[in-house]
Amino acid sequence: MPTLRIAQDAAADELLGRDPLALLIGMLLDQQFPMERAFGAPRLLADRLAVDVLDAGQLAAMDAAQLVRVFQGPPALHRYPGSMAGRTQELCRMLLDRYDGRAERLWADAPDGATLLERLNELPGFGAQKAKIFLALLGKQVGVTPPGWREAAGDYGLEGSRRSVADITGPESLAEVRAFKQEQKQAAKAGREAAGK
């Protein structure tokens, strides 16, 4: 079982390390929301449902309005609890349809990084960038290393990078990833301003 330090909270990180669905939902929620709160949300979700591990079948079958209320908290599991509750249900339904409701089946038999990336790209709420980041997270911290995983993850798979959640192993690396993201935002803004002149 991997030891993760993404949420910066012992109970939340412990769940991420032993529950593949919790890790996948954390990644789903990691947008327009602080990383550590997104990855801490699966622990809050499990606590509110009074379960030890998250279950795709249970989440998929829940009344949509009830799940939204669970996501609303307080505290809310995401800035957009309604839409993210819906995406979580979509993700769980797809896992039931294709992987017997088991998140780890996404990667357990992946013959290579390209195939795994393709599977991740098909997930609701996962775009090209998020799929590459999650692939890098699996490879760097969870021990899922099919042949060609680094190449499939692109720059996120680079050894020693500080680009994404895949590189967070504690408070120091979280600060480094935040700094990198801030630089990227500033560069993008400068590019837009230059193009607008």
Rank of each mutant, 00 (worst) to 15 (best):
P111A: 10
L77E: 07
M84H: 11
R98G: 15
D112T: 04
L67G: 01
L45I: 03
G127T: 00
P124M: 02
A64F: 07
A10K: 09
P111G: 02
L45C: 00
R162P: 04
G125S: 08
G73T: 05
R5D: 12
D100I: 08
R119D: 09
D109V: 05
L67T: 03
P42H: 09
L174T: 13
A152H: 03
F71L: 08
I168T: 05
S83N: 14
G191P: 11
K130T: 15
Q182E: 14
A103Y: 06
P75L: 00
A153M: 00
G154T: 03
M84S: 06
G17I: 09
T169G: 15
Q186V: 10
G154V: 06
G17T: 08
L96G: 11
L174R: 15
R93H: 11
Q8M: 11
A38C: 04
A114D: 15
V70C: 12
A136N: 06
L15E: 00
G82K: 13
D55R: 10
E36C: 05
P146T: 08
R18Q: 02
K130R: 10
L4T: 08
P2E: 05
A64M: 05
A22W: 00
A103N: 10
K189P: 04
T145M: 13
A12L: 02
R69W: 04
G154A: 06
D63V: 06
A190R: 14
H78P: 07
L59W: 04
G148C: 05
L28K: 07
L116T: 02
K132A: 13
I25D: 06
S83K: 14
D47S: 10
Y99W: 13
A128R: 15
L23P: 01
A22N: 00
P34W: 02
V51H: 08
L120K: 04
L116C: 06
R178I: 12
P147A: 10
D97R: 13
G157D: 00
K140A: 01
R102L: 12
E122M: 04
G160N: 05
K140E: 08
I168S: 07
D47N: 11
G73Y: 07
A50V: 13
E14P: 00
A46L: 08
L24I: 03
L49R: 11
